[in-house]
Every structure is written in C-alpha cells, then in structure tokens.
Design a protein around this nucleic acid. Structure first.
Length: 880
RNA sequence: GGGCGGCUAGCUCAGCUGGUUAGAGCGCCUGGUUUACACCCAGGAGGUCGGGGGUUCGAACCCCUCGCCGCCCACCA
C-alpha cells in the first residue's frame, strides 16, 4: 500500500544511489544506439549550486533522460573548471583568515600545493549538489580542467597555435587589475556607473604665447602625457600644430599634434594624449610614434617614471595631488561633476587600468572566421535563434584575446626563455631544452614563463578535451561533436564562441549541433539574485522544503525562451501539489486493483471511455515528445500537467468509478488495465522532468523488469486515436460541465438529484448519453436521464445538444432570469459579430472556404441556442 | 551611440507561420467531510493584449511610430 504522500526527503537520495550504482548514467554500449551527448558547462570548482545552475542542469537532465529512454547512447559528461582567479581568491582568503602567511611569502610551489589540498577537501561540493537535483551525469567520466589529460590538450593546442602564428606575444595595452595584479580580458571588464569629475587643465605653450585647455577624468594620467592632439581642421588650433606645450608639474615639453581622433565638439577640442594609459591614446601614439611612458607599477602606484614627489602614491592619491598642484599653479580652468561608466574588474571590483605589458594573445580574428561560417550555414543552430545575432555581432568585431594571466593557479604557459630572451614554445621542458640546445649549440638554462593561461582557454577545449583528445579515443569518435549545449547567454562570448573557434580549428567540426540558451533567473520582484541583495534562493533549501521534483518541474515550466525567469515559492508549491496529485491517482489505482497484465493491448480496448483516454494519451505523448525534441521544455511541462491533472485525474478516473464499483466484470477488467496502462505511460512521460516520484511509483505499482530511468519512451500509434470516442466523450463532458455550472449558479443544493432531461439530441447522441448514464448520474448528481421535455425545467446547451434540469423548486426566479439574460447577451454579441462577417462580401470572396463554412455553422448553432434560451426566458416571465 | 528582449487577468506567464467567445497556474469570491487526493473537488468574477497609426475580408500576432522596463556592446574629453 502506498503511503499517504510521497516523502521526497527519504526517497530521493535512495533512488539516486540506486541509479548511480546500477550504472544507468553511462551511455549504453549497444552499437546500434544513436549517440547523443551533452557536455556540462563546468561549474567553478569553488562554486556551490545556485539557482541558475539548478535551471541549467535541470534542462540538461530532462534532455538526457528523454534521450536515454528513447534508446540513445546518452552521455552527459560532467566536470568542473579550475576557475583561476576565483579559486586563487578563495584560498588566499582562507589563508588570511587562518592568519597564515600570504601567497607571495609562501612561494609559488607551496601555494599551488595548498590549492590542490583545498580542492581535494572541498572541491567536490558542486558535484554532490548536482546529485541532489537528480542530475544523471556519467560520473565515471567526470573531468577537471587541470587534470593531466586536459592539461596535455591545453599544451598541445598552445604549441600548435603558436606554430601556426595564431598565438603570439605582444606588447600592448591590456586591462590591468591592480588588485590581483594580472591582465584580464576585455570580457572580464565590467562598466560601472560612478560619480566623477571632469577637470579642465591649462597646459601653457612652451613659447609663452598662451595656453591650451584639455579635460580629463583621470588627472593622474597627465604625468604620462606625451602629446596634445587637435583636429587638423579645427581653425582654433591649426596655428598651434607642431608647437609644444610644457607639461605642468612634470616640466616636459610635449608636441601639439593633428589627429582626427580629437573631436572639435568635445570640451575645448584639444585632447591630452597618454599612450601608455589609454586605449584610444595608444593608437594615436602609434600613429605619431609618440613615446609611451608608463607611470604605474603593478599595484597602480606611481612608479619611478613619475615626478619624485608622486612616487609611491596610489593612483587616487596621485589624482588628488595633481588636481591640487594645478590649482596651486593657477592652471585649473574648471571642474564639473559627471556620472560616467568606469571599467572595473568583474571579480576584483576595483577600477582597472589600461597598462602597457607583454602578454600572450590569440589571433581570434582568424579563428573566428570558420566559427562564424558554421553558424551562418546552420551546422550549429542557436535556440532561440535571435542569440545568433549576438554571437555574430561579437565574432565579427572580435579583438585579439589576451590569454596570459599573472596568477599561479592554472595551466602554466608552455614557453621558455633563453638567456637572451629568445622564446621556446614546447609541450614539455625537455623539448624546450632540446630546442634551446639546437639553437644555442649548447645547453643553456631556460626559464619557464611565469604566467598561466586564462581559465577560458582550457574551457574552450572542453567538448573534445573531455572526450580524450588529442588521443583518438572511442569516446571521441562516438560522442564528438556533441549534440546540444545548454547554457546561459552570459557566457556566449566567454565560452560558446571560443569552443566554436577551438573545436572547428582542431577537429574540423563544430562542437555541437545546437546551442540552447536558457534564461536568467531573477527573484519574484525581477531583481538579479545576488548575495549582497540577500535575495538569493538556495536550490538546496528548496529541495529540502519541497523535493527536487517540484523544483525541477517549476524550472522546466518557466524556462520559456525569451525572458528572465521570476521564481517564487508559490509556483514550486503548486507543482509539489501536482506531484501529490499524481501520487494519489496512483493510490486510487492501487485501491482499485488496477494493474495492466503483460498481455494487455490497449489498442484492443472496446469501452468508449477507455478508447477515449487511450487517444488522449497518444496525443499527450506526441506533444511531449515533439516539445522535448525541440527543447520547448515549457510546452512539454504544460502538456504533462494538463493531461495528467485535467484529463486523467479530473475526468478519466472519475469516469472509471461507476465501472470499478459496478458488477460488469469484463468492463471492470478492461478499465483496470487501461487505468494502470495510462498511469504507466504517464510515469514514463513525466520521468525526465520529475524523475524521483515517477521512479518510486514505477517500482511500487507493478512488477518491473527494469528501472524507469531506462524504460522505453512511449511511441504510440496514431491508430489508437479514436475520433468517434473523442467526440462522444466531449458530449458527456459537456453535459456534465455545463450542467454543473447551471446548478452552481442557481444555488441548487448538492442533495437535490433531479433527472437530466435530454430535450433535443439525435439518436446517436442519445445512445452515447444513455451508455454513460451512470457517469452522468454520479458526476452531475442527477437521477437518470429522461427524454421528454418538462415545463419549468432550466435549459442549457452543450456540444449542440439541448438539456434541461427540472429544478424549478430550488430556483430563485430573479437569479435564473439574470442567468438567462446573461447567456442571451453573450450569444447575441457573437451572433452579431458572426453575421456581420458573413454579410461582408469581401470576407466571403477572400476568406478560405473552410473559414466561411465554420462561421456559417457557428452562426446557426448560436441562433438555435439563443432561441432556446429566449423561449425559456419567456416561459419564466409568464410564470412570474 | 549601436543592438537585443519585454510590455496579454491582481501576480507569474502561455498564446506556432494572422481565422471560434484571448488561455493556464497562483491569488480572490461562492459552495462542498462525493471512501485517491483539503497539497483536494465543483463553480465564478476578472483582460478595449503598453499608446497611436497602417496593411488585411480579418491583427495579441505583420509594418511604422511613440512610450515605458530590462539587458548586451561601445564610450573615462
């Protein structure tokens, strides 16, 4: 006997263990099975499961469970990302909290060892949390981006790209994060609106003939100015081009140059040029071969290139000092407050500085070509399609990708430097030394590059490195390219684009056929969830409170494509109730000994009600299947909900009661079998979204030869759809539903059991109603059918059949009059609209014939019911 | 400045390539101890589909325009 309700707390972990131990998460070895693979977007190893992960991984799990049941060799490959900066931060913070010495004092080797220790202790949290969600990943294939295999792939890719001149070392401006003291890529820079000032400074002309005014929001950079630019056509300044100004404070003469970059409409029209500390100025500096003076040290303090009085000052202190100096010199020409966007490091949160350093770059432009083409010609399709625009936009304007990071945790760059600075790029130190020997003619000591690679460099290889590349493994042959990638739009640039580039370059094939972009989760008010706002919803707490299934169903149902998801517990509660509803339906079946014998062939069922629910089941299965094929997860969830609750529970099980409680044994047997068979089918169809409750019911409602997780997906023949049964049952449903509304509106007590009078129906309809009299009796609470009109009965129409309920003694005349008037008004509106349409010659001439015909039938039907209602109203008036 | 998405019932959202009276869940109101289920059952109220214009026999859906809301990219003179 099933318990009163499903206990998720005790059942879910038990079932997950059962699945995992049964080995069903690994793809089948059946060579005939079509491979279907997904690689997980590897969460940061430092991470814990947040609600976004819950959504993303639920959708992946729905898809992989669906494919597994369909018989595919379904592989969901899990793993984690070493997450350079994030992880290094966590461990450094931990060291600090424990009062230990810092990273720099520890030294590189000891620190990295400490990070590995940390990883061993607490790095697996997110994998455990994914299990609680029910994620059916193949844990035997779990990968980590710093694993030996993946590291080897990274080195090989680096060396190959270097050899192909697609990786190179360059001295240019980078975004420098002074807190972490590392370069970061453009994508890791986040613009934040802050309050600041425009300071207007006068630079005196060297010959004393006047001054030129420039404006800046970063006064400290003037210490590194090497020119002032004006527009060549700016009449105010043409006479000054070629002259010099004497840079205040510093005292250096710098030229006034002509460059289009200067915009006559902005400020004074003259702009200070600081090539070493501004991206635009850098280009101007290159054009004019200006000196590049770097005045900042790695922590953004003024270095030895600044005036003595400023050395060692933090950039913001230096800013104040520079402004004060200008004021003291009488050269401050104005200050305005401005609110402007300032670049910040997305991890560190501090203002980043354009900074002149040597770094490694990937020639992204070249790699982007094939990646753009693959999406253009549809080898890879984004879902929803509009994200392709975003992808193209970025890919077509891509900049060189700075891949070196001045960190310790990550893949160390496989480049070695000789005593003369010559670079040897090789996969191993031995190879580098050998190359050095060949070059120098003797053994020379080489020093490996201190830097590590951007975390996203290894992630870019994820779809093939995790399958064993560069080895030609059977997994690689079988599961690459992967089928679908499910991820968030926030990492289309960071990750998806780069996987496309690397995948195509190294394997010749796009790494996935389809990229499904899932929405972003917000709180019930629409705010982005963040710890600082305190509005985060912890998925594990939600699992504790409601179970994994309701959370999964909620996320699936709300995964509509084009929008942010606002999550509320009310919704989760609703789907918890849905699970309970299913549980109780199963209890009902159990109570009524509903089991489907192995020999049961639903197609041979003869009962009208059974043939009807069979057809509905086929239709529901079609809908769910089609929706999941198309990643229309919300549509699948809606179809399941409707079918299970509104068709199976509300109608079919109610219809079955008179039979199950009756004495017609053959009918009883068929209904028992059908009820059980449909329930079984429901468990299968619902399993991808609600795996736990369905697996539990599967095991408790019948003798099973296998787990539900590997049961075959329902593939039901259309021939099982019986349109006649569907039409017949629509009549029964209509008679009951409309009749109930009449009773309720007229406040007829439930105890009243009048007969149901069938006023006007054709013989076939009468037969249907007669055959279902027991159902109608029970559900409409009437006492049998009568086929003779009685005066004073309250009429209603359903499915074109006229019914009446003799309930005169209960009714309030005024209420009934109001009801009829309202009904008539409703019909009148529709009749007017439809007849107007049919009177329109253009409509008749241009609308398709079937639409015209539909409207004709509709009009006739409405007019008939209106007449009936009017007659009834007239009779009522006569009584009163 | 460039681009994207959204604006449909009190709330959260469905409504595919234009064609019945625009739907669901939650909430609300009314009535229910019908032996699967009160995490339930039955019924009900509630929307000029952001505004305006256009195309069309016909527009929530297509076009134009305006208005909000959100996001992405660029911008620190």
């Amino acid at each position: 006997m099933l318990d009163k309700a499903f206990d998720s707390g005790s059942t879910e972990p038990r079932l997950y263990r059962l699945w995992e131990e049964s080995g069903v998460f690994a793809p089948t070895n059946d060579p005939a099975a079509t491979p279907f693979s997904i690689v997980i977007p590897p969460p940061n190893v430092t991470g814990s499961l947040h609600i976004g992960h819950a959504l993303n991984n639920t959708l992946q799990d729905v898809l992989i469970r669906f494919q597994r049941m369909r018989g595919a060799a379904a592989l969901w490959l899990p793993g984690t990302d070493h997450a350079g900066i994030a992880t290094q931060m966590v461990v450094e913070r931990q060291l600090a909290a424990a009062g230990n010495i810092g990273r720099r004092d520890m030294g590189r080797e000891a620190f990295v060892e400490r990070v590995w220790e940390w990883k061993a202790e607490s790095g697996g949290a997110i994998s455990r949390q994914l299990r609680r969600l029910g994620a059916s990943c193949d844990w035997s294939r779990e990968r980590f981006t710093l694993d030996e295999g993946l590291s080897r792939a990274v080195r090989q890719v680096f060396v190959a790209l270097h050899r192909q001149k697609l990786i190179y070392r360059d001295k240019r401006l980078v975004n420098w994060d002074p807190r972490f003291q590392t370069a970061i890529s453009d994508l890791e820079v986040e613009q934040r609106e802050v309050d600041g000032h425009y300071w207007h400074f006068a630079y005196p002309l060297e010959d004393g003939s006047g001054e030129i005014v420039v404006a800046t929001t970063r006064p400290e950079t003037m210490l590194a100015d090497t020119a002032v630019a004006v527009h060549p056509d700016d009449a105010r300044y043409t006479h000054l081009i070629g002259k010099c100004v004497r840079l205040p404070i510093v005292g250096r003469p710098i030229p006034i140059i002509a460059d289009d970059y200067a915009d006559p409409d902005k400020g004074s029209g003259a702009v200070k040029i600081t090539p070493a500390h501004d991206f635009n100025d850098f280009k101007v500096g290159q054009r004019h071969r200006l000196p590049m003076i770097n005045i900042l040290d790695p922590s953004a303090r003024i270095n030895e290139n600044g005036p003595a009085a400023y050395r060692g000052l933090d950039r913001f202190e230096a800013r104040k000092a520079v402004v004060a100096a200008f004021e003291a010199l009488g050269l401050l020409r104005g200050v305005e407050k401005v609110r402007h966007a300032v670049p910040h490091g997305d991890r560190s949160g501090v203002v980043v500085e354009p900074y002149l350093t040597d770094q490694w770059y990937v020639d992204a432009k070249t790699l982007a070509g094939p990646a753009i083409a693959a999406v253009e010609d549809g080898r890879t399709v984004f879902e929803p399609r509009h994200w392709e625009k975003t992808y193209f936009e970025w890919m077509r304007n891509i900049e060189p990708w700075c891949i070196s990071r001045q960190l310790w945790w990550g893949h160390r760059i496989p480049a070695w430097y000789g005593p003369d600075g010559r670079i040897f790029v090789a996969e191993t130190e031995e190879e580098a030394l050998a190359a050095g020997r060949e070059h120098y003619g003797c053994d020379e000591p080489l020093r490996q590059d201190e830097d590590v690679l951007d975390t996203w460099f290894s992630s870019a290889l994820w779809p093939f490195s995790t399958l064993g590349w560069p080895e030609k493994t059977s997994d690689l042959a079988r599961f690459y390219p992967t089928h679908t990638l499910i991820t968030g739009f926030d990492i289309i640039f960071f990750w998806v684009a780069r996987m496309m580039m690397m995948g195509l370059h190294f394997t010749g094939q796009a790494p996935f056929q389809r990229v499904f972009i899932n929405a972003l989760i917000r709180d019930a008010e629409g705010a982005k969830m963040s710890k600082s706002k305190g509005n985060v919803m912890d998925p594990l707490e939600l699992v504790d409170a409601y179970g994994a299934d309701p959370l999964r169903f909620t996320l699936t149902a709300m995964s509509g494509q084009a929008r942010d998801i606002r999550l509320s517990t009310a919704r989760i509660e609703g789907y918890r109730n849905f699970g309970t509803k299913l549980w109780n339906a199963a209890r009902f079946c159990e109570l009524n000994s509903c089991v489907a014998p192995p020999s049961f062939d639903p197609g041979l069922a003869s009962g009208r009600v059974n043939r009807w629910i069979l057809g509905e089941t086929v239709k529901a299965a079609r809908q769910v299947t089609r929706a999941l094929e198309a990643c229309a997860f919300d549509t699948a969830a809606a179809a399941l909900y409707r079918f299970i609750w509104n068709a199976y529970c509300d109608w079919y099980l109610e219809f079955s009661k008179p039979v199950l409680q009756g004495t017609d044994e053959p009918a009883k047997a068929e209904t028992r079998a059908m009820a059980a068979w449909v329930l079984e089918t429901i468990l299968k169809l619902l399993h991808p979204v609600m795996p736990f409750i369905t697996e539990e019911l599967w095991s408790k409602t019948g003798e099973r030869d296998r787990l539900l997780i590997v049961a075959p997906w329902p593939d039901l023949p259309d021939a099982w759809i019986d349109e006649v049964a569907a039409r017949d049952m629509a009549l029964v449903v209509g008679a009951i539903a409309v009749g109930r509304a009449v009773r309720s509106e007229l406040n007829v007590p439930l105890s009243a059991r009048p007969p149901l009078i069938v006023v006007d129906a054709d013989p076939g309809q009468r037969d249907v109603l007669r055959a279902n009299a027991a159902i109608i009796d029970q559900m409409l609470r009437v006492s049998g059918l009568e086929f003779q009109a009685v005066s004073g009965a309250v009429p209603y129409v359903a499915e074109g059949v006229a019914f009446a309920l003799p309930i005169a003694e209960f009714i309030d005349l005024a209420a009934e009059r109001a009801r009829l008037a309202k009904e008539i008004a409703g019909q009148t509106v529709d009749i007017d609209r439809t007849s107007k349409k049919l009177a329109n010659v253009d409509f008749l001439a241009r609308a398709p014939e079937e639409v015209v015909e539909e409207n004709r039938e509709r009009l006739a039907e409405r007019q008939a019911s209106k007449e009936r209602l009017e007659t009834a109203l007239a009779r009522l008036e006569a009584v009163s």
